[in-house]
Simulated assay, not measured.
Amino acid sequence: MKIVVIGGTGLIGSKLVSWLGEQGHEAVAASPRTGVNALTGEGLAGALAGADVVADVSNSPSFEAGAVMEFFETSTRNVIEAASAAGVGHHVALSVVGTRRTPTNDYFRAKLAQERLIEKSGLPFSIVHATQFFEFVRGIADESTQDGQVRIAPVLFQPMAGDDVARAVGRVAAGPPLNGRIEVAGPERFRMDEFFRAALASWGDPREVVTDPHARYFGTEVGEHTLVPDDGATLGEIRYRDWPGRDA
């Protein structure tokens, strides 16, 4: 099966291309590094020629409200147009758990716009909603730092390893279209403030983690269940304490 991975040289994309290749698929990494630019449309038609599946795991280089919306709307329209012309039979996209619960978050709103474009495209599709990646834990701590304190809300948090994300997307891409969504998450659920208190301690990071019910997550207050999946989610295998990059 030929599976074209949009964003195929990035964090998740490179892992996905490797996993698909190990399963015997023809996995094609499509990104600006390989001459394919979904935002401008450059190289898309050639990359998708003869493809059975397109899996979009690309991400916006900017999270500014206008830029992130422009990226996901424009690139998704370009992928849909090229995939339709090439006769691709399955459009897979990686999105985020909580997009429908946090309409005031600029990034989540842009991902939701992407999902709606895919749903209305007429192409068979699958959308994989994943929780936050272990690889972004330090970035969350930095984003949440104010005056030397890491301010975190005491809400539920269920992050997962990038390798588990890639496997989940790969299994969906290699299977029949869901024409709907699937949620994937890490194998353990934490209180977010407690998770970060333990994580910073394990890094030897002297910043104090302050429990703040009104702390913002990338600009938005979140509720108890905003960042975690509903019952029935597919769970990854790698626990944070066993993740090789934990103390890197």
Rank of each mutant, 00 (worst) to 15 (best):
S58P: 10
S58A: 15
N59Q: 13
N59D: 06
S62T: 05
S62N: 09
E64C: 02
V68G: 00
M69C: 00
M69P: 00
E70K: 14
E70T: 13
E70L: 11
F71K: 09
S75V: 10
S75G: 07
T76K: 03
R77H: 12
R77A: 13
I80Y: 04
E81K: 15
S84D: 02
G87N: 09
A93D: 03
S95F: 10
V96T: 14
T99N: 14
T99F: 10
R101I: 08
P103S: 06
D106H: 11
Y107H: 13
Y107L: 11
F108K: 12
F108V: 04
R109E: 10
R109N: 13
K111Q: 02
K111A: 03
K111V: 01
L112R: 15
Q114P: 04
E115D: 13
K120Q: 15
S121E: 10
S121H: 05
P124N: 08
S126H: 08
I127F: 02
V128W: 04
V128M: 02
V128G: 02
A130W: 06
A130G: 12
A130E: 14
Q132R: 05
Q132I: 06
F133R: 09
F134K: 09
F134E: 11
F136A: 09
V137T: 15
V137M: 15
R138W: 14
I140T: 10
I140A: 08
E143T: 12
S144V: 06
T145C: 11
Q149M: 14
Q149R: 15
I152A: 02
A153Q: 00
P154M: 07
F157T: 01
Q158H: 07
P159L: 06
M160V: 14
A161E: 00
V165L: 12
A168D: 04
V169P: 07
V172I: 14
A174Y: 03
P176T: 15
L178P: 05
L178A: 09
N179V: 04
N179Y: 03
I182N: 00
I182Y: 01
E183R: 12
V184C: 14
V184P: 08
V184N: 13
A185F: 01
G186M: 10
P187A: 07
P187V: 08
R189F: 02
F190M: 10
F190L: 05
M192C: 05
E194P: 00
F195G: 01
F196M: 03
A199C: 05
L200W: 03
W203P: 01
W203N: 02
G204Y: 04
G204T: 08
G204S: 05
G204D: 10
